[in-house]
């Protein structure tokens, strides 16, 4: 399942997409430790699979919470994406 967490508002589109089919085979869950803002968590979803998700309290603020990892210039690779062995995480902005 592709889970899109985030939003579209007047200023733009801010979604973090997690392809959770990869999570079920993942034992590392590196995303949880890698995110400096603590956005990720491992949950049991509605189909009883253990998958990564963005915590509820961050879903309406990803634009701001991800800000420190996205400076205007000299933007390094995002730690959450780098930590995922399956390339399951993408950002829309």
């Amino acid at each position: 399942m592709k889970a899109n967490y985030g939003y579209l508002d007047g200023s733009g589109e801010y979604f973090i997409t997690i392809d959770t089919d990869h999570c079920t085979e993942c034992t590392e869950h590196g995303c949880v430790a890698a995110c400096p803002a603590g956005l990720f968590e491992i949950i049991v979803d509605d189909y009883d699979d253990e998958v990564a998700a963005i915590k509820e309290e961050h879903r309406k603020k990803v634009k701001y919470d991800c800000g420190p990892c996205k400076p205007v210039t000299d933007r390094p690779p995002l730690p959450c994406i780098a930590a995922c062995p399956a390339d399951a995480i993408t950002h829309s902005w």
């Binding site: 399942m1 592709k2 508002d9 007047g10």
Partner: peptide
Amino acid sequence: IHCDERGKVTNFLMNDKCAAG
């Protein structure tokens, strides 16, 4: 929501941050 023939979710998004839409 995008779902398969059994009604299982394959792709979704939820926008509850912004009142537009």
